[in-house]
């Protein structure tokens, strides 16, 4: 269970996130949505202790995450940051192997269990045929899947992913999302992901948090968050919300940019 208490987050002196209080429901999939630059990645990184907040706390099971031993946290929580880069020449299988780092000591020889998890993560992301290819020579989508495999290899009950579906084609987007859903269903993992596609958020997440300029506009079920007025406030677009005939979940069909969001017209 992760809770934030009055988080203020800043880069140098500019305050990006003000007085943030969110709860990540355990054993559920949570989607963070918001416009570019609204602070989603900043919030995700701070909740995963990659950044220190200016003030306030992030509590993991009631304890301040920034005070816990980072290696112990890494056994609980894996995070895939936005746009990670691997050293030149590192192969996919090596990359995924480093996902076992929190479970290793010293020189890090691999146990049978480690090897099984690594193979499973590579298979689950469909990366078998690229296992021995250098990561820097893969396509954007293949690379993204390699990094997801690394996060999976960490085998943590909590999984944070910053835009796991960017660079992926439609089939691979669904594949990754289905995989996350399966991890949630089979192993009750807690998953927090930043996604830009609201319909993916609605279809896969149980809980949505809509962020604007570093503050929460609305948090709740997709039904509660996917409202035309909320979406207009968060994204500055006008949309119709219809019901997905297959799942009954809300779907967002944008039709216009709100007037205030448009570039000012100079005559």
């Amino acid at each position: 269970m992760i809770v934030t208490e009055n988080l203020d987050i800043a880069y140098d002196q500019t305050l990006i996130v003000k007085q943030l209080n969110v709860e990540i429901p355990p054993h559920k999939i949570t989607a963070l949505v918001g416009a570019n630059g609204s602070g989603k990645s900043t919030i995700l990184k701070t909740m995963a202790r990659l950044m220190k907040p200016k003030s306030g706390h992030v509590l993991l099971d009631g304890k301040a995450i920034h005070r816990l031993k980072t290696k112990e946290v890494a056994k609980q929580l894996a995070i895939l940051p936005q746009n990670p880069t691997a050293p030149e020449g590192m192969t996919v299988i090596d990359l995924v192997t480093y996902g076992r780092f929190p479970h290793q000591r010293g020189f890090g020889s691999l146990t049978q269990k480690d090897k099984e998890v690594i193979l499973w993560a590579i298979e689950a992301t469909g990366m078998e045929e690229f296992a021995y290819r250098p990561v820097d020579q893969l396509s954007g989508g293949q690379r993204q899947r390699a990094w997801i495999a690394m996060a999976l290899a960490q085998e943590t009950p909590i999984l944070f992913l910053d835009e796991p579906t960017t660079f992926l084609d439609m089939a691979h987007q669904l594949e990754v999302l289905n995989l996350l859903e399966e991890l949630h269903e089979k192993e009750q993992r807690t998953i927090v992901m930043v996604v830009h596609d609201l319909n993916h958020a609605s279809r896969y997440a149980h809980h949505m948090i809509a962020i604007k300029k570093g503050t929460v506009v609305k948090a709740g079920t997709p039904m509660e968050v996917m409202q035309p007025d909320i979406i207009e406030e968060v994204f500055g677009i006008q949309c119709d919300i219809i019901q997905d005939p297959r799942t009954g979940l809300p779907l967002c069909l944008p039709y216009a940019i709100s007037r205030s969001q448009k570039e000012p017209v100079i005559v």
């Binding site: 990659l50 880069t85 780092f101």
Partner: peptide, 21 residues
């Protein structure tokens, strides 16, 4: 002795922290 740590650090601060270094 720190070879593995060096590997992990060469992913950059974010990924390295995420992995527990």
């Amino acid at each position: 002795y720190k070879a593995l740590v060096l590997d992990v650090l060469s992913f950059g601060n974010n990924v390295a922290t995420g992995l527990g270094a």
